[in-house]
Design a protein around this nucleic acid. Structure first.
Length: 191
DNA sequence: AACGAAGTCAACCGCTAATTT
DNA sequence: GAAATTAGCGGTTGACTTCGT
């Protein structure tokens, strides 16, 4: 009698058969997937999933490879420059995480998204709330040093640019990211 | 030390767009 | 041109960790 296959939490089961693993990837699965992709390339994720021997769906393999296993990936320690770039690009593009990640070599859309949700969105909300309380009228308590610094920072990140121009520009040209470069150049000059 | 709340992040889900048949 | 398949994206979830009481 064949031994029962151990089920981990989250494994998907149809009937009495274990179909695909779910949840956190093990080191063994990572190795198998990396080895397969290095040999045969990262294309046709369904095939990769089947042949790499990881018992995962193609989607899961793709995500794991793109976000953690592929070469030249950077993890953690987002620098001030990167953070500044994320803030500016988000101001311009909104939640277009893959586009933003495309401007940050080695960073993934998932990491940028997580970083935004756990760090930057709070910062931005904090600043926005502060800016709802403008200059104190004469005779009342002047703004604190901290608040004045916040205001200066807000001025620094103010974007003095006609967005219609930018989108018109992007529509005229190719679908490349030249227009974002243009935007960033203008933004840097303004800062 | 124990517990709950809050924060973080890896992974999944559902949807759309792009590509293939 | 239509249908099926695959790839990619953004939102959300849930496990784990850290912090405060």
């Amino acid at each position: 009698m064949a031994p029962k296959m151990a089920l981990k939490k989250g494994d998907e089961i149809i009937g009495k058969r274990k179909i695909v693993n779910k949840g956190a990837w093990t080191a063994e699965e990572d190795t198998k997937l990396s080895d397969y992709i290095q040999k045969y390339g990262a294309k046709q994720w369904k095939t990769v999933a089947l042949k790499a021997g990881v018992n995962r769906c193609g989607k899961s393999c793709r995500l794991r490879w793109l976000n953690y296993l592929r070469p030249n990936i950077k993890r953690g320690n987002i620098s001030d420059e990167e953070e500044d770039l994320i803030l500016r690009l988000h101001k311009l593009l909104g939640n277009r995480w893959s586009l933003i990640a495309g401007r940050l070599p080695g960073r993934t859309d998932n990491e940028i998204k997580n970083y935004w949700n756990s760090h930057l969105s709070k910062k931005v909300n904090h600043k926005e709330r502060k800016s709802e309380f403008p200059a104190t009228p004469a005779g009342t308590t002047p703004p604190s040093e901290e608040m004045r610094e916040e205001n200066l920072e807000n001025e620094d990140t103010e974007i003095n640019i006609d967005m219609n121009d930018l989108f018109h520009f992007s529509a005229e040209g190719t679908y490349g990211l030249d227009w974002i470069d243009k935007f960033l150049q203008i933004d840097e000059q303004g800062a």
